[in-house]
Simulated scan of single mutants.
Amino acid sequence: MKHDIGRPLRSHRVLSMAGLLVAMAVIFVADTVTDYAVAAAGFYTAVILVAARLISARALILLAGLCIFLTIFSFALTKFGSYQVGLINSCISIVAIAITTYLALKMNAAQAAAQQAQAQLLRIARVTSLGELSTSIAHEVNQPLAAIATSGNACQRWLDQQPPNLDKAKQAVERILGDAHRASDIIARVRGLTQGEQPHKSHFDLNQAIHEVVAISRTDVEAQGISIDLSLDENLPQVLADRVQIQQVIVNMVLNASEAMADYQDKKKEIRIQSALSAPHTVQFSIIDSGGGFAAGSIAHIFDPFWTTKGTGIGLGLAISRTIIEANGGRIWAEEHTDGGAIFKFSLPLAEGNAA
């Protein structure tokens, strides 16, 4: 006997929408029979937030329009209190309904983008016979997807406050959209890299790219008690490389550096990032951590695929980084730090016309 598992879900959705309609009726009655000073219409925002998980974007816009209409109609029917106070409260409620609807639509769009990125990852894994490709993408896309989840939870907390903190929620939604697009870009770049496609090279400011990566990573890194120190050459010329891929390498190096210091409690934990003009035609990036450095003999293998010293690592991060840097005409290497810790460096060619 076949069971229709979708029927209980549809029934639950119908009951939920019926409950929301009842709630709207209650809010309308409360807003109408109470004094102008009581802004009961503000509770329509809660209806919008719940409905955003149940109905389509078009239906949500129509529902928001209905809430605004009920707010105006209730104001016209109310006969108690100060008219000016009621007008101000009604306008505030209408604005809150509109903003909440906008944020709910943005959040749903961000979640859809994240789901699309994950679906693309699954499709690639099914059609390719190259197991390293799917593993590589999963490794590199993990950070932006984790950031999406963190920002989504933060957005939900801001919206659940009474009253909702709409400015903070909007900022969280913008971070979600940015990370969703970054995940999609990473998937496309890694897939193209494994298929022999040339990087999407352009002229860009390496220092600005570094600042963007640090802004994304700083909160998580500092939560581990690690400080980030930047020493960037302000007169650095532009480089010629794939910006998304280079930022992918920098993110991986920052994460590796923070993981290298995770078990150190009695030692100052610091990541130093430097940029400088290293030769007439190249720019050099350096990242230095204060961890335990390299094990004996390991420095010769750290860029080998599937070679790792981490208990939960898969040994692809640095191998992918080397492939990316070399595909962009650069070089990557590691060095021992005399004061302990590790140093990773890579060089990139200057953009045309910027050679010294």
Rank of each mutant, 00 (worst) to 15 (best):
G293V: 02
G317H: 05
Y264K: 13
A319V: 02
I271W: 02
I288D: 00
I325M: 06
G297Q: 09
D304Y: 05
G329S: 04
A319L: 01
G317R: 06
G313V: 01
A257T: 10
L316S: 05
S290R: 09
H301W: 00
T323G: 00
S258P: 11
H281K: 15
S286V: 13
I288N: 01
A319C: 13
G311Q: 06
E335G: 06
I271P: 01
I314Y: 09
F303G: 05
T308I: 01
I273G: 06
I288L: 07
I302F: 03
A260L: 09
A296D: 12
I314R: 13
A295Q: 15
D304Q: 09
T282F: 10
K269E: 09
G313T: 05
R331V: 08
K267V: 13
E326W: 00
E259A: 11
E326T: 12
I320M: 11
L318Y: 04
G293H: 06
S290C: 10
L277V: 13
K267S: 11
E259F: 07
P305V: 00
E335Q: 15
I299V: 07
G315V: 02
V283R: 02
G330S: 08
A276L: 15
K268R: 14
G292D: 06
T323N: 05
W333A: 13
N328H: 04
I287E: 07
S275F: 04
S258W: 11
D263V: 02
I287Y: 00
R272L: 11
P305R: 02
I299L: 13
R272Y: 09
I302Y: 00
D266N: 14
E335N: 12
Q274F: 12
K268L: 13
E270T: 14
P305K: 04
T282R: 12
K310R: 15
G311H: 04
Q274P: 07
H281W: 10
I325Q: 03
I287G: 03
D289H: 08
S258M: 14
G311D: 11
F306V: 04
Y264C: 12
T309Q: 08
T312F: 14
F285C: 04
H281N: 15
T312R: 10
I325Y: 00
R322W: 04
G291H: 01
I287K: 11
W333E: 06
K268E: 14
S275M: 11
G330K: 06
E259V: 09
F306I: 08
T282P: 03
F285W: 12
F285G: 03
G291M: 03
F306Q: 15
A296R: 01
E259M: 10
R331P: 04
P305N: 02
E326P: 02
L316F: 04
A300M: 15
Q274M: 12
S290E: 08
H281S: 15
G293P: 07
Q265R: 13
S275I: 11
I299H: 00
I271G: 00
A300D: 10
K310A: 11
A260P: 14
Q284Y: 00
Q265A: 09
S298P: 08
D304F: 07
A334Q: 06
T308M: 08
G313H: 02
I302V: 11
D263Y: 07
Y264T: 09
G311V: 05
A300N: 07
A276Q: 13
I324Y: 03
R272K: 15
K267D: 10
E335A: 14
E270Q: 12
S290H: 10
L318R: 04
P280W: 15
G330M: 05
K268A: 11
E270M: 04
